[in-house]
């Protein structure tokens, strides 16, 4: 199965890898204080800047971008609907509400603890979303994302109200709008867990492809559908909660990247997973670089840039696919 998907795209793979490498170097070079990459080895201050700020920021963008794109792919598989993603269907909002509540009740809790609570809340919120989504008539594919947007909106409103009451609206903005400007060494490493989640997704890739064929096809092929559903839910929730807690939520990555890859290469997850992860990493990294350059030396948060770029991509997908989605 995998061989037939991979071989015609070897050249495209090289080009994509080069593109990602260029973005990586650009991201290391671009910032308020100039960083001459050629002198990094001889200039200890430049090396310090690279290791403490630029490299962590770049890695954070790659890890969260790849993770969120994979989370979108998994969520679309679980919901059997192409137009849902963690940012719009209640997962991110639940994580935000969870981390807000733990911050209110235990302000001194460490980041890993808060992330864990956010992950638990995301798991609960996403389970409720999927349980409801599976009851909606499959003949009307737009009901699921519509329901998701309303559902996510309600949870988001609850979080906003709670934050407003507690005078924590500024905190909430940190979690709801992704921004890499605060990323430093020692403050992003939790995101490596996202890479672990992506690795698990790779391990169960064939099962994810089969799950997209539906419950009955999955059982017929001997897959423990209920358990795979739980695994998928955990992957989506953990990745989303990590993004929310560490850098803030980034919208549209989970929607745009899996859809574009599906258009170009199909839905055999074993063959597309790497592309989805690389696409998510590249898109987020590119948007972060754009956000650093557009009002130089000031910065625009990556979440805002992605809102514009991702929204445009989403509209394009909607109009291209039309009603037969």
């Amino acid at each position: 199965m995998s061989a037939s998907v991979l071989h015609p795209s070897l050249r495209t793979g090289t080009i994509a890898g080069l593109g990602l490498a260029v973005l990586f170097v650009l991201s290391l070079a671009v910032g308020v204080s100039p960083l001459p990459l050629g002198r990094v080895l001889s200039d200890p201050e430049a090396l310090q800047l690279l290791l403490v700020s630029r490299l962590p920021r770049t890695l954070a963008a790659i890890l969260s971008g790849a993770g969120l794109a994979i989370a979108g792919l998994i969520m679309q598989t679980l919901a059997r609907n192409r137009f849902v993603e963690p940012a719009t269907a209640g997962t991110a909002q639940s994580a935000e509400l969870g981390i807000l509540l733990v911050t209110l009740l235990f302000p001194a809790a460490a980041l890993p603890v808060k992330t864990l609570v956010a992950g638990g809340a995301a798991l609960l919120g996403t389970s409720i979303f999927l349980a409801t989504a599976h009851r909606l008539p499959p003949a009307q594919p737009f009901l699921v994302p519509l329901f998701g947007i309303v559902y996510g909106g309600v949870i988001g409103a609850a979080a906003t109200y709670a934050a407003w009451q507690a005078d924590l609206l500024q905190f909430l903005a940190v979690w709801t709008n992704g921004d890499f400007s605060g990323v430093l060494r020692g403050r992003y490493e939790l995101l490596w867990i996202s890479a672990l989640m992506v690795a698990i997704a790779w391990f169960v890739a064939d099962r994810l492809t089969i799950m997209a064929l539906g419950r009955e096809a999955s059982i017929g092929l001997g897959i423990d559908y209920a358990r795979m559903m739980q695994i998928g839910l955990v992957l989506v929730s953990v990745i989303t909660a990590l993004a929310v807690a560490v850098v803030g939520m980034i919208p549209f990555v989970g929607l745009a990247v899996p859809n574009i890859v599906s258009r170009l290469m199909g839905d055999n997850v074993r063959g597309t997973l790497g592309w989805v992860a690389a696409g998510g990493a590249g898109l987020v990294l590119a948007c972060d670089i754009v956000g650093r350059l557009i009002r130089y030396p000031y910065e625009i948060p990556v979440g805002t840039v992605m809102g514009v770029v991702g929204g445009a991509i989403f509209l394009w997908l909607l109009f291209r696919r039309g009603a037969h989605a």
């Binding site: 199965m1 037939s4 998907v5 059997r80 499959p138 890739a205 064939d206 099962r207 492809t209 089969i210 997209a212 064929l213 539906g214 009955e216 096809a217 092929l221 001997g222 897959i223 599906s262 258009r263 199909g266 839905d267 055999n268 074993r270």
Partner: peptide
């Protein structure tokens, strides 16, 4: 089943290949 719909973009060879999943786990 009689009402099987395939919403995934899979090629015919890939789909038929997934019939072998129970034997080699992919």
């Amino acid at each position: 089943r009689q009402d099987t719909t395939v919403a995934s973009r899979l090629k015919v060879r890939e789909l038929v290949g997934f019939g072998r999943f129970p034997h080699g786990r992919g």
